[in-house]
């Protein structure tokens, strides 16, 4: 016959098998981090928000990480800050990812429609591109200026910064999934559009945002610290790594390195630990 001969079984889709089990070294740093966030504030030797000794004491006996220029214990503050920084990062990641998936799904499914719904979806799509083009730190600054610096307002601001990318990732995947033959097959099998979206489009198009979630978490942590460093994040004496680095920076210039270094190391280790979780879950290293 003049028909196509053997066409090899093409399955270009990446096969992402999620390896089971949590007994993995890559999760250990993250587990320690969570423990510190939960228990840190009760474990620390000194109050993290009070002046407890003379200022600028170097690391040693009573104060393992020394004291800062105000006389607060750097070790206690570094540990206690874990909860604030992690909490903001976590809530931001959950919000930005779930809202991003929702928006990406709605936009992707409606973008090519005629009528007002399609126009609206295309408008949102452009808006996402636009917000994406503005540096997150600027959006953060503006929003914080509006809502004031508190954990809820920081979370909202960072969610607004980080949501567009999540939504765009999902939208692009929805556009691909929308053309898949199994959707028409499901329609012919009697599925309504709502069932179709919930059971087939959502599960098949949300993975880019989930894979990206650990990066979002990292960005949220870094942005929180960045805003704190710029003096518009959580205000001292609330323990927060960014503002601690800012307090310690002048001292570091004249040799009192400890009060800026330890929170900076904590920040770096946190981002590293979280990226370990991402690699563990999605095995893309």
């Amino acid at each position: 016959m003049a028909l196509a001969l053997d066409t090899p079984d093409r399955d270009t889709r990446r096969r992402r098998t999620r390896r089971p089990g949590i007994a993995s070294v890559t999760l250990v740093p993250a587990a320690i981090l969570v423990l510190l966030a939960v228990l840190g504030p009760v474990l620390v030797p000194f109050s993290p928000i009070d002046v407890v000794d003379r200022p600028d004491l170097p690391p040693g006996g009573a104060h393992w990480f020394g004291t800062d220029s105000a006389g607060m214990d750097v070790f206690s503050r570094t540990i206690a800050a874990t909860r604030n920084n992690l909490l903001i990062g976590l809530i931001t990641t959950v919000l930005a990812t779930s809202l991003g998936i929702l928006i990406g799904l709605v936009v992707g499914m409606n973008e090519s429609r005629r009528g007002p719904v399609g126009t609206l979806a295309r408008g949102v799509s452009r808006a996402l591109d636009l917000v994406q083009a503005v540096p997150a730190i600027i959006i953060g600054l503006v929003l914080i200026a509006f809502f004031g610096a508190s954990i809820p307002s920081l979370t909202v601001a960072l969610t607004v910064c980080l949501l567009p990318n999540q939504a765009r990732l999902v939208r692009a995947e929805v556009l691909r999934v929308r053309g898949e033959a199994y959707l028409d097959a499901a329609r012919v099998s009697g599925d309504s559009e709502l069932v179709l979206i919930a059971k087939h489009v959502l599960p098949n198009s949300s993975w880019p945002a989930l894979e990206n979630a650990s990066l979002v978490f990292g960005s949220a942590i870094v942005l929180t610290a960045g805003l704190g460093f710029l003096g518009v994040g959580l205000h001292p004496p609330t323990p927060e790594w960014g503002s601690m680095i800012a307090i310690g920076a002048p001292g570091a210039a004249s040799g009192r390195w400890w009060s800026a270094l330890f929170p900076a190391v904590a920040l770096a280790l946190t981002v590293f630990a979280v990226s370990g979780v991402g690699r563990r879950l999605f095995g893309d290293d």
């Binding site: 079984d9 399955d11 889709r13 033959a181 097959a185 599960p203």
Partner: peptide, 14 residues
């Protein structure tokens, strides 16, 4: 009812 062309996408991969 429909029988579509066999592509690897005629069934939901998940």
């Amino acid at each position: 009812q429909l029988v579509a062309q066999d592509t690897s996408s005629s069934f939901d991969p998940r």
